[in-house]
Computed example of a mutant assay.
Amino acid sequence: MKILVCVKQVPDMESRFKPDGSGTWFEETDLAFRMNEYDEYAVEQAVQLKEQLGNEPEVTVLSIGPDRVNEAIKKALAMGCDKGAHIQDPAPQGKDPWQIASIIAQYARTEGFDLVFTGMQSQDRGSAQVGVLVAELLGFACATTLVGFAFADGVVTAKRELEGGIKGVAKLRLPAVVTCQLGLNIPRYPTLPNIMKAKKKEILAIPVADLLKEEAVAATARFYPPARKGGGIVLEGDVGNLVEQLYGILKEKTTVLR
């Protein structure tokens, strides 16, 4: 069995975000980057399956982006993946989910993978489209939003979280694509020995032009930071006084609006 797990490097959500000069993406100069949270669950599940099957399957981790995405690939290798594939693209943010999925599918098709793991969505774009589009392009069975995973006799049993917190179960014969989310597992922390081992693992570099065969079907025209809001007022004192203060403020605001 050959397993592919797709990861994306995203800005740390604690970063300060602002639009770049083009107004179509973030200014990256002062941003810190990390592996997308949902992709960590995908990596962990792929490695758990490898361990379940006696380390026989080969697990490849793929990421699209500039040189910095090698850090995300190395983390996945330290978690237990066998080798990496870096699709070299200096500006992946300019590609829509259809193009990203087509790049992944083109690579997966040539390598003959049996099972593909992805995160449910990325934390920066949040389209939740790439995994299902990969499945469509490859003609694979697909289950999304996994919170439970089991594998036996060539069949994936996927427990999915549906609307309203309802759990659904799907059974998929390989080849298949599954997308992973919070609750599926607890990603392991790479140990120092495994981090050292990861440095010796192969990371194949592939120019994105070798795999990109599709034109974009959607483009970001522009996005804007949230509008600044006025500061709040903290009222302190006895309840009676607070009521009077609040009434006065509301009366004043109502008069201004008129």
Score class of each variant (00 low, 15 high):
133 L>M: 15
187 P>Q: 08
69 V>P: 10
33 F>Q: 03
5 V>E: 04
245 Q>V: 04
212 L>S: 10
81 C>V: 13
212 L>D: 09
164 G>M: 10
163 E>K: 00
209 A>L: 06
101 A>R: 00
145 T>G: 03
78 A>L: 11
173 R>V: 08
147 V>D: 11
239 V>W: 01
117 F>C: 07
177 V>K: 03
129 Q>E: 14
85 A>F: 06
124 D>M: 03
1 M>W: 01
129 Q>F: 06
143 A>S: 13
24 T>P: 15
169 V>H: 00
223 F>Q: 08
217 V>H: 06
222 R>C: 12
61 V>G: 11
106 Q>R: 13
169 V>A: 07
212 L>R: 05
31 L>V: 06
102 S>K: 07
4 L>K: 00
75 K>L: 12
215 E>M: 04
93 Q>A: 13
193 P>H: 02
150 A>S: 14
123 Q>L: 11
136 E>M: 14
108 A>R: 00
230 G>V: 05
108 A>G: 09
107 Y>N: 05
247 Y>M: 09
152 A>G: 10
142 C>E: 03
28 E>K: 00
83 K>S: 13
32 A>M: 12
195 I>H: 01
93 Q>W: 08
108 A>M: 06
192 L>G: 04
110 T>Q: 15
98 W>R: 04
160 R>T: 15
241 N>W: 00
77 L>V: 09
39 D>G: 05
111 E>M: 05
96 D>I: 06
30 D>W: 00
199 K>Q: 10
65 G>V: 06
180 C>L: 05
131 G>L: 12
210 D>V: 05
192 L>W: 05
216 A>K: 13
96 D>K: 00
223 F>T: 08
67 D>M: 07
127 S>I: 11
135 A>S: 03
222 R>H: 14
6 C>K: 00
229 K>T: 14
69 V>T: 11
203 I>L: 01
77 L>W: 02
145 T>V: 13
61 V>H: 04
238 D>S: 10
235 L>F: 08
107 Y>K: 02
130 V>P: 04
44 E>S: 10
128 A>L: 07
32 A>R: 05
32 A>L: 15
60 T>Q: 08
118 T>C: 15
55 N>A: 07
198 A>V: 08
70 N>Q: 14
214 E>W: 01
88 Q>P: 11
116 V>H: 03
189 Y>S: 10
214 E>A: 11
75 K>N: 12
111 E>A: 09
164 G>A: 09
5 V>P: 08
173 R>I: 02
59 V>L: 11
197 K>F: 01
182 L>G: 02
197 K>L: 08
144 T>N: 07
191 T>H: 02
214 E>S: 14
153 D>C: 03
200 K>T: 07
105 A>P: 10
53 L>F: 08
255 T>I: 12
138 L>M: 12
32 A>W: 01
60 T>E: 14
48 Q>E: 13
68 R>T: 13
36 N>H: 04
246 L>F: 12
26 F>N: 08
67 D>L: 12
57 P>D: 11
56 E>Q: 15
154 G>D: 10
83 K>L: 14
215 E>L: 07
88 Q>H: 05
233 I>L: 14
